[in-house]
Design a protein around this nucleic acid. Structure first.
Length: 318
RNA sequence: GGCGCGAUAGCAAAGCGGUUAUGCCGCGGCCUGCAAAGCCGUUUAGACCAGUUCGACUCUGGUUCGCGCCU
């Protein structure tokens, strides 16, 4: 019965991978050969005017293979996993209605997880509440905030580290807004499963060293392509942008800002940018290792060979 | 050539005669509205040779190398 229901679900394809694994190239190839529409699953590509540092597909590529959810907000705005999920669900329904298959491509693994697994009915972020919590934490420190959390939600506190400012803040925020603990809210609402049958592909490097080389090469290319000018232009166009803005927490941008502020020289900018990108790739790979039903493809051998296409075609026509 | 100083992990950098320096990097992991974020864990030392000592990265002598000063 469950099987019947699954069978009748429309199809969707995930194409995941760490940064610099060649996702865009693979997506364009799939787009040219299959009845798909591409949805970007990337927390950085949503920002307008952030092109070089995010390795956004260029205009020519986007003209040839359009991506949804690229350039949808200003760098002064914030986006979230919940925003993504509702945007993606809407687009997937549209695409399916057009008789196409959604191809979700990107490296923001939390977004993939939220899309597939759903989110509980929690309140959205509230800047005033967060500012208040930040102020309090500045006084007493996050470990003390963690102790406060333990009083209202022992179970959540137990699974959070005393220094995990971000999650402690969110748990306290949720309680302050709703009067209920995160634990209670999780239990209350079971998130609905994604009503699509999925084929999950992952581009994974067979040799981490080679991925690191690619990352270094790409960061150097960004610098010569005028990455620092892009960041300067960003500051001029959006004067309210600060190092705390969500968009400026992206790999490379934060370091560029620090360098432009004179905190360190160009050589160190290069090092730090590359380190941050490697660490991002590592976290992405950790996510991937823990995901189920993944078909791994070696991103160092990027040919989408016949057997992969056979698999996809079979999945589509099943 | 003489004098002085130094030699600690992939890099930077301390203390210490006997229990983990630390930071960065690297590696593993966690992950419910900031996720390209945030957090947790962790591998790799004491230039070389000899001596003192129950015990030396730590004290002594020598060798090599580097830095500075002098002739």
């Amino acid at each position: 019965m469950n099987f019947e229901k699954t069978k009748s679900n429309p199809r969707a394809i995930f194409l995941m991978g760490p940064t610099a694994s060649g996702k865009t190239g693979a997506a364009v190839e799939l787009y040219s050969k299959l009845p798909v529409e591409i949805i970007s699953v990337d927390s950085a590509l949503v920002y307008r005017d952030m092109d070089i540092g995010t390795a956004k597909p260029d205009a020519k590529t986007l003209a040839k293979a359009p991506h949804h959810l690229i350039d949808i907000i200003d760098p002064t705005s914030a986006y979230s996993a919940a925003n993504f999920r509702s945007d993606a669900l809407r687009l997937m329904a549209d695409i399916t209605a057009r008789g196409k298959i959604p191809l979700l491509v990107g490296g923001t693994m939390l977004y993939f997880k939220a899309l597939q697994g759903g989110l509980s009915g929690l309140p959205e972020a509230n800047q005033e509440v967060r500012a208040r919590l930040d102020a309090r934490a500045a006084l007493i420190g996050w470990p003390a905030m963690h102790e406060k959390l333990a009083l209202i939600d022992a179970s959540t506190a137990a699974r959070l580290e005393p220094n995990d400012a971000q999650r402690i803040q969110r748990a306290l925020e949720v309680f302050e807004i709703t009067g209920e603990s995160m634990t209670q809210l999780y239990a209350k609402q079971t998130s609905e499963a994604l009503p699509y049958k999925l084929l999950k592909l992952a581009l994974v490097p067979s040799d981490r060293k080679v991925l690191h080389e690619r990352i270094a090469l790409r960061f150097d290319q960004m610098l010569t392509a005028g990455f620092l000018d892009e960041v300067k232009a960003l500051k001029e166009k959006y004067p309210t942008l600060t190092a705390d803005s969500t968009s400026m927490r992206c790999v490379g941008y934060r370091q560029a800002l620090e360098h432009l502020a004179g905190e360190y020289d160009a050589a160190e900018l290069r090092d730090r940018g590359i380190f941050a990108t490697r660490q991002l790739a590592k976290r992405q790979l950790t996510w991937l290792r823990g995901m189920d039903d993944i078909i791994e493809l070696d991103c160092l051998n990027p040919q989408l060979n016949e057997s992969v296409f056979n698999e996809i075609n079979q999945f589509i026509s099943d």
